[in-house]
Design a protein around this nucleic acid. Structure first.
Lengths: 214, 214
DNA sequence: TAGCACTTTCGTACGCTGTATAAACTCGCG
DNA sequence: CGCGAGTTTATACAGCGTACGAAAGTGCTA
């Protein structure tokens, strides 16, 4: 007999390997050697399946045992986990604007983030606001990173063909001289892109720290 | 005769009024009193239309004339513009993880952001990194805001029915006592959510400022 | 063992999507 | 006028989510 967990696992496997677009009800069913409508005994709509997938990978962000002492270290750890999860499951980025329901693991994740502010004498509302800034930055970063990592080899040949067509058009605009500041960045590229996560994150934490002391 | 601009305008009107899902080739064509395939004389694929829509609303973020003096004021202005655009066109949030090609107005917008760092003696790479942090925060914020504003009345009755079903489930989890820090936030809500944009943004800018002086 | 209730599975079908293909129509130019 | 180029169109295909109702399987009770 099928289980909800097996369905979610199969869907995640497909999304990991072939992207979110490959996750269709019929396809997930096929991978489980079942017919499409069978899945609807376990989920109500596809949206539910996506929410379950998100909550499943949210579990991978959870830290077992006590958090590191120090709010910065705790948040850094949680942020690294979060980033790793999106790198493992890049389809997560494509689901970010779609407002899937949050599940138990998502709640646990938020609770752990809130716990980072324990014992600092920060009231709940302030902690929540710090967290919002932190979360917003994380969201933006992981989405951008997923796009940048995905773009060069999106769908193999198809995508490099598109790039080959799109590039000259952009290049033409750039060469027009309208973008003196942007042009060198595009032509020369940005070195050490991989360090930028920790660096940017620390800048944001610095901004928070300044107000945490006040 | 149809024009590319008219097609893009019609698509944006539909998205504004009924959301991104309502934007189908057939529907846009119908609003223009044309048949579906007619649009394909002006765009190559639907993805192109979406990219054109994005670039069209990117124009609304552009500042005419000189930027305010002072990098903070300049970035604040651009950030406010960006937020307003997403509030006017909430479907933008749903397109954020999808990597549509950037167009001329998108490039102009980035160029304006880079211009905010003019005359500060910051090298290009550093300015770029500052901008990345700023952009990532903005991305995260506008997506979250769009979701929060959209969620309560997503699709009228349908959505409040879903909420009525989903709520008890979450409530049950919360009442289980596993989330001592999160529970009060959900039960009591977060006051003054509207001020949080400027506040969070300023914290991020504070973080940047600390390193800009070094 | 037989029957019944219930769950799980499945076939079929509907309306929708993006878009390939090729035919028809329109229009300015030689 | 005729022709070629560009625009519009009908038709069709493969795929999607999922509503509906029947079939098959499972387990409990008499």
């Amino acid at each position: 007999m099928l289980t909800r967990e097996a369905i979610v696992a199969a869907a995640i496997a497909i999304a990991d390997a072939e992207g979110l677009d490959a996750v269709s009800i019929r396809r997930v069913a096929a991978d489980l050697e079942a017919r499409a409508m069978t899945l609807y005994s376990y989920i109500e709509r596809k949206e539910d399946l996506l929410a379950l997938m998100l909550d499943e990978i949210a579990a991978e962000t959870l830290v077992e045992g006590p958090l590191p002492t120090g709010w910065r270290e705790a948040l850094l750890l949680l942020a690294r986990r979060e980033r790793e999860v999106v790198r493992r499951h890049p389809w997560r980025a494509g689901l970010i604007g779609h407002g899937a329901a949050v599940g138990p693991n998502g709640l646990r994740h938020v609770e752990q983030k809130l716990a980072a502010f324990d014992g600092l004498g920060v009231d709940r509302l302030t902690a929540w606001r710090f967290l919002a800034v932190f979360n917003d930055y994380m969201t933006g970063f992981v989405v951008r990173e997923a796009l940048e990592r995905g773009a060069p080899r999106e769908q193999g040949v198809n995508e490099s063909e598109r790039a080959a067509v799109a590039e000259p058009y952009i290049r033409e605009l750039i060469d027009g001289g309208e973008f003196p500041r942007l042009a060198p960045m595009i032509e020369r590229g940005v070195p050490g892109a991989d360090d930028n996560f920790e660096r940017g994150l620390n800048w944001v934490l610095d901004g928070i720290e300044g107000h945490l002391r006040a």
